[in-house]
């Protein structure tokens, strides 16, 4: 195996991949949230549609979309490999295990939270990505992405599902954000508390903004 291959297949290498892809997905969330937050301007979706058009046509962004999908898949596949190894590392389970005494439930449940996010992601891609990239609904001008949003969020079930999924995302980020820095070797008296604070703020603000979007559209606050 090549040097890089050996490094990335070691325990620390696999963790490195989780951390780097995780932080890359964090940067995606930031961009995604910023563009979507344009709907809060309440200008009938005009700014948002312009933003969406830019994201859909700019060649650099389109290229990054491929990198993004690769990043998501790598994050998931690596997580599966790690989880299987971790299960094998304890073949006989404890009869009594008081995990809450020494760690947070969401830190121990990253796999479960990630699976919930993946299930949401599939539904979410079907709602928006498939419509805007795989059909000519939007490019032909028959429909705008904002119009699509209003249509999808007419259903209270969908709105509830979206909001619920943002809780999974929030808790996944609450552990993942600071955990990625620890894995990359950034642990320092001077700046680790700041990283942890930014992580908490990010994990609350971004999912809250995302959750407010379907709620605001469903309630008709955004027209």
């Amino acid at each position: 195996m090549s040097n890089l291959g050996k490094t990335l297949s070691s325990s620390l290498g696999k963790k490195l991949v989780m951390g780097i892809t995780g932080l890359f997905l964090v940067s995606f969330l930031l961009v995604h949230c910023a563009v979507n937050a344009l709907i809060f301007l309440n200008d009938g979706g005009e700014s948002f549609n312009r933003g969406a058009e830019f994201m859909g046509t700019n060649p650099l962004i389109r290229l990054m979309e491929i990198v993004l999908f690769a990043g998501i898949i790598w994050h998931i596949v690596q997580a599966l490999v790690l989880t299987m190894q971790n299960k094998k590392a304890r073949s006989v389970q404890y009869a009594a295990y008081t995990g809450n005494a020494n760690s947070k439930w969401y830190a121990r449940s990253m796999g479960l939270l990630g699976t919930l996010i993946l299930m949401f992601l599939i539904i979410h891609l079907k709602h928006f990505w498939v419509v805007s990239r795989m059909t000519d609904e939007i490019t032909s001008g028959r429909e705008t992405l904002f119009g699509e949003m209003k249509e999808v969020f007419e259903s209270p079930v969908v709105v509830f599902l979206y909001v619920l999924s943002m809780f999974s995302l929030a808790y996944h980020l609450l552990h993942g954000f600071q955990s990625a820095f620890q894995t990359l070797g950034f642990n320092h008296k001077k700046y680790t508390p700041t990283i942890q604070k930014i992580g908490v703020i990010f994990s609350i603000v971004i999912p809250t903004l995302f959750a407010l979007m379907p709620i605001a559209i469903y309630l008709g606050i955004i027209q």
Partner: peptide
């Protein structure tokens, strides 16, 4: 055949000698 760290911090909390997980970051570096 040990497992992989997921930074839950449980080890640090249970260590009778209070070894810090900052050591794990140093090892990674």
């Amino acid at each position: 055949g040990f497992g992989n760290c997921t930074n839950t911090g449980a080890c640090e909390a249970e260590c009778p000698k209070g070894i810090s997980i900052s050591n794990i970051a140093r090892m990674n570096r």
